[in-house]
Each structure stands twice: as structure tokens, then as C-alpha cells.
Design a protein around this nucleic acid. Structure first.
Length: 580
RNA sequence: GCACCCGUAGCUCAGUAGGAUAGAGCGACCGCCUCCUAAGCGGUAGGCCAUGGGUUCGAAUCCCGUCGGGUGUGCCA
């Protein structure tokens, strides 16, 4: 079934050709569809066609054009067209719109809004990318949640996705860490303390190294051993890595996140010669102050450093090596890097280098940048303890949710499980609520606020839908296209129901825009609008004790809302509790 | 200095491939549970869309300048 917008565009195009048979340069159906907009006020209709642009072609004032077109459009079963100050405003036939929208949503069910446009296309998403021996804190929340949500959104549209946790597992800091461990650590304490214990060792190293600079050399020596594959160094290093992944996995489990690949810096260590060779071969490498660079002056950027004076590689080298590997391995159509905007220049530089290497897919490398996070107005500082660990945040959010449940729903059975869904949901929602480029200043009271437009609000609305549906009579529950016999769609013609139907009908488009703009917040916003609209509908209309037929129609709408909310929640990485 | 990003209500933000009278949440104040989940709903108050030009029938939205803020800017990642 063609959507309403397309059908209205077809009506307009047809009316244009009949009203102005002599005119040339009339817009096509698709052009008309692009002109169509949603009026600012509901009283102005469901769609509006602005006639200003046609004024020149048709040598007529916009109001005259609108009037002529409205006279030529006769489709009462679909909509009415009324001219108003240069616009042609379309008012849906409400009953028809309700029937069509509801049946579309209910037939699609959990797949409403999904698509197949991505079938056969692969998208690599590089996100979260934790550092070994460092605790997961709120600074990692955005990359993790944006990446995870994008993954679900692209999956929903039929793409094959590859989620990649590009581990920060290479560098002299690991030599220093081994030094600290050998001097002051022991197996049991570190095994028990996990990443926190490693962090303490690292801090101690820095304190002691200020007094005793020889420690730096010792650290470098241990790192050299890692590089050379020394068995003891490798064993300790791999153990640190396993400890970090073990601790981090607890958080990933709470968030429901998994990765297809953990290939990080260490993995690419032996794959960088190819990059250097290729750059040399293509005459892109020049020596400057002893370092090997790719000059980017003609692109208006500082040069991209490939090799240090001492011949060591740099992170641009590693990123290029990883991109080449991923193209060879996954044949991606796009490769997304969900990384903070601080690294914007870095990405623009090495993307340009890949382009200069002659790879047409350089244009498919996308830096999905997001804003900085600060804590109570100040930069996060792990050393000073000015930091919020993700695990602590999620646990406190769970506790807060549990308190509220004990207060408001003392009879709820699985309180702990629901509290986890709600508390964690609040954190996820807050992170994906606004455009990703916005900076976030973290405050505990804000993070733990569950009133207003928050995660709990949308989950609450979902639970409310579930509650209504549970109490509905078993018979006559609408489930799809064949419920026309029992549902009276006249019961969905009020402004509240219509607004809700409008939002439901636009949901698939919202998912696509979110994908096109790498912007999960567009799904969050659609989700919130639907929830708000349902709560208003719910207060203005009786559902269960409405008359026969109307009750079924409103239950159908409730089911459609419930399913769409559930889908939208899933797409941003939240759970949808049925009771709370 | 240069580059990128951002300036919309007291606070946090929607709205930007131009469209009609600029919206929401929080905070403040006032209401609504004998009724399907009050984690809800309604109302009041709160705006020179940073600023000056330009393009246009029409600009918060596009272009140029200015001011303010953030980030980055050759051997860390």
C-alpha cells in the first residue's frame, strides 16, 4: 500500500495536469511529494502543498493556484483539500486514515518500521573501544550507546553489521604497568581487585617515577619484552587484558551489548608495514624533520604523521591499516567510527590519506562524532577521583528505581529485575536523548531524575499499554487486517487518536532518518512523541469501557502503540518492562 | 594565528536540503485519582532564535562579517 503522502502527491500532480494542460515545467509526483510539508497547526490539516514555487511557472498568484487545485481534487474517501493563503491543505478522511494506519502497524507487528533496503550491504561500526587496564567510566557511555543503537537500527533495516571493539591494548604504558606489578603487586590482589587494582598500580608507578626516573627505563624495557614476545611479559600482559575484559563485560552485560570483533591496536601491530610500503610506492610519503608524513596542504590540513623520527608507527598508521584490513575482511559499504569530536582532525586527515592512496571507498569512512562529557562542570580526571564509573552509575540508577518501585508498586513481583531495566534505561535514554554532537555535563540528580521526558516515562507508557491490554476481553482483540468486522474506526476520529496515528505512521521514516544521519536521538524523539501522545489519548478517551466496536478500535491502537514503543526502545538499546 | 563544532525560555534541549502564529522537558506557581498504572494529565509564567548585513514572495534555518563559547592544531591515542 502506497503511503498517504505519496497518494496525496499523486492527486496533486494529476490535478495540476488537468488544471494547467498547457503549462510546461510542472513538477513530477516525486517533486510534489518533496514539496509537501506538515502544517505547523493541526487545524491546518495533515499535509500542506505550498503553491508559491509554481507561481512563476503558471503566472498566477499562489492563492489562485491553491483554489484551482482544490476544485480539481475529489477523493472524499481519502482526504479533503482546502486552499488557505497560498497553501493547499489536505485533511485526511479520519476514519480511513485510522483503519489504514492501524492495519499497517498491526500486520507488521514487531517488524513495523523495519526494512530490507540494507540487505546485502555491510556496515562496520567501530565503537566503545575500551582501553586495557582502565575502568569503564561515563566518558565511554556515548560511544558505547550510540554505536550499539546504530547497530540495532541498521540491523532493523536489513544491513549486515559488524560491531568492532577496537581495543586500546598497545603502548609503553603496559610496560610501566608490568613494572609496577612486579615491584608492588601480587597475583591474588590483582586477580581480586581487577581493573581497579591495575589502575592503582599505574598511579603508583607515576608517583614513584617522579622520585625515581629509572623506573621509566624499566617500563620501556618491559614493553620491549612484550613487543619481542617474551613469554613472561606476554603472559602478564594477556592476563591484564583478560581482567579488563572480564570487568568490562559486566557492564556490557547490563547494557545488553556484544561485539563481533575485539581486534584492536595489538592486532594491527604486524599489519602496518603494508601501509608504509603502499604509501611509498604511491609516492605519498615525504620526510619532514626526520618523520615520514603525507602532505595534506592542498586539502588545507596539517600533514598526517605516518612514522616517527625513530621509525615507529602512529595512530593514523594504525587506523589506516585497520581500515584496509576491514575492507579486505568484511567488504564494508560503510565503516563508522563512533568517536568524540576531539578527534575530528585526525579522522579527516587519515580519511584523506586513504583517498590519496586511490581507494574510492574513502568516502565510505564516516566519523560519527559526539560531544564531550564533563562531570559537574569539570573535566573528568581519573587521577583526582573526579570521575563516575559506569558500573556505579548503573547500580545507583537501579537502586533509585528499586526505591520508587517499592514506594509505588509494592505488589510488583520481580522488583529487582524491573529496577534494573528501568534504572539502566534511564541512563541510556539520557545519553541518546539529544543530538550526539551536544556536550553533556553529568550531574547525579539529573541522571537519577525519573520524571518528565525520561527513560522511565517511555517505559511507563509501554507498561500502561500492557496493563490495558491485559485487562481487555479475550474475544475481539484486534490483531491485524481482519479485525475490520469488530473495530469501529469512528472511535479513532478524535484529535488525540488522530495525532497518535500520525506519529505511528511517521515512525518508519524516523528510523530511516536516524540511520541516514547516524543519529539515534531521532528514534528517541519519535519514541517520546508517541509516548506523550498516547498518555494524552489515554486521558481523553475511555478504552475498556467504550462501546462495542470503539473499544476494539482503541485496543487496536493501544496494541499498535505498545508494539511501536517496544521496537523504538529496542532500537536505542532499552528494555520494555510490561509492568513497573 | 589557522581549522572544525556550537550560540533558540532561568536550566537542558527540539525545530536547520527555507515556508503559515518558534516548541518540549526541568525548575517555579496553580489545578486533576469513587474512573483502564498519578513514574501520569492540564493550566500560568518565561523568547530581539548571540549580533550586523545579504539572498528570497518568505530566513531560527542558506551566504558573508562580528561577538561569545568549546575542541583541535607534527612525532600520545
Amino acid at each position: 500500500m502506497m503511503d498517504m503522502k505519496g497518494r496525496i502527491a499523486a492527486l496533486i500532480a494529476d490535478a495540476l495536469s488537468r488544471c494547467y494542460p498547457q503549462a510546461s515545467g510542472l513538477p513530477s509526483v516525486t517533486e510534489v511529494q518533496d514539496f509537501l510539508e506538515i502544517p505547523p497547526e493541526k487545524e491546518m490539516g495533515d499535509y500542506a502543498f505550498p503553491c508559491f514555487k509554481l507561481s512563476k511557472v503558471l503566472r498566477q498568484g499562489p492563492p489562485q493556484i491553491a483554489a484551482a487545485l482544490s476544485g480539481a481534487i475529489r477523493a472524499p474517501e481519502l482526504c479533503e483539500a482546502k486552499p488557505l493563503s497560498g497553501y493547499l491543505n489536505f485533511f485526511f478522511n479520519r476514519e480511513n486514515f485510522a483503519r489504514e494506519t492501524l492495519q499497517t502497524v498491526l500486520v507488521a507487528g514487531a517488524r513495523y518500521g523495519s526494512g530490507t533496503e540494507g540487505v546485502g550491504k555491510t556496515i562496520c561500526i567501530d565503537f566503545s573501544s575500551i582501553n586495557i587496564a582502565k575502568r569503564f567510566h561515563i566518558g565511554h557511555l556515548s560511544t558505547t550507546m550510540i554505536g550499539h543503537s546504530l547497530r540495532r537500527i541498521y540491523d532493523f533495516l536489513g544491513y549486515t553489521t559488524v560491531s568492532i571493539n577496537h581495543l586500546g591494548d598497545w603502548g609503553t604504558q603496559f610496560g610501566k604497568l608490568i613494572t609496577a606489578y612486579k615491584r608492588w603487586g601480587n597475583r591474588e590482589d590483582v586477580e581480586r581487585g581487577g581493573v581497579e587494582a591495575l589502575t592503582q598500580l599505574y598511579v603508583r608507578f607515576h608517583d614513584e617515577a617522579e622520585k625515581n626516573p629509572a623506573l621509566e627505563d624499566e617500563g620501556r624495557a618491559w614493553f620491549k619484552k612484550i613487543e619481542d614476545g617474551d613469554p613472561q611479559a606476554t603472559e602478564i600482559f594477556n592476563w591484564f587484558k583478560a581482567l579488563t575484559l572480564r570487568d568490562t563485560q559486566r557492564v556490557y552485560d547490563m547494557l545488553g551489548i556484544s561485539f563481533d570483533s575485539y581486534n584492536g591496536e595489538a592486532f594491527y601491530n604486524d599489519k602496518m608495514g603494508r601501509v608504509v610500503d603502499e604509501l611509498k610506492e604511491k609516492n605519498l610519503l615525504t620526510i619532514s624533520d626526520g618523520a615520514s608524513i603525507v602532505d595534506l596542504e592542498e586539502s588545507g590540513m596539517p600533514p598526517c604523521l605516518i612514522l616517527k623520527k625513530d621509525g615507529a608507527t602512529l595512530y593514523a598508521t594504525r587506523d589506516i591499516a585497520a581500515a584496509l584490513y576491514r575492507m579486505d575482511t568484511y567488504h564494508f559499504d560503510k565503516c563508522l567510527y563512533v568517536v568524540a569530536y576531539q578527534q575530528d582532525l585526525h579522522f579527516r586527515q587519515w580519511f584523506k590519506v586513504v583517498e590519496k592512496m586511490g581507494y574510492p571507498w574513502a568516502k565510505d569512512l564516516i566519523h560519527v562524532a559526539f560531544g564531550m562529557i564533563s562531570y559537574e562542570g569539570q573535566t573528568l580526571a581519573t587521577r583526582k577521583g573526579h570521575v563516575v564509573y559506569l558500573e556505579d552509575l548503573l547500580n545507583r540508577a537501579k537502586e533509585k528505581a528499586l526505591e520508587i518501585i517499592r514506594d509505588k508498586s509494592p505488589e510488583l513481583e520481580n522488583k529487582e529485575a524491573v529496577a534494573a531495566q528501568v534504572g539502566i534505561g534511564a541512563v541510556i535514554y539520557a545519553d541518546l536523548q539529544n543530538n550526539r554532537i551536544k556536550d553533556i555535563d553529568f550531574w547525579w540528580d539529573r541522571a537519577l531524575n525519573f520524571d518528565g521526558e525520561t527513560g522511565p516515562y517511555v517505559q511507563y507508557t509501554h507498561a500502561r499499554c500492557c496493563s490495558v491490554l491485559r485487562k481487555a476481553p479475550k474475544q475481539g482483540m484486534p490483531s491485524g487486517a481482519n479485525d475490520g468486522a469488530t473495530s469501529n474506526y469512528g472511535g479513532l476520529c478524535d484529535d488525540y487518536a488522530q495525532e497518535l496515528l500520525r506519529l505511528l505512521s511517521r515512525f518508519p521514516q524516523a528510523v530511516r532518518e536516524a540511520a541516514a544521519r547516524y543519529e539515534p536521538s531521532m528514534v528517541t524523539r519519535a519514541l517520546t512523541e508517541i509516548a506523550k501522545s498516547y498518555n494524552k489519548f489515554y486521558y481523553e478517551n475511555r478504552i475498556l469501557d467504550a462501546e462495542n466496536g470503539v473499544r476494539e478500535a482503541r485496543l487496536g491502537l493501544t496494541l499498535a502503540v505498545k508494539q511501536t514503543l517496544q521496537t523504538a526502545l529496542f532500537l536505542i538499546g532499552m528494555d520494555a518492562p510490561e509492568r513497573m
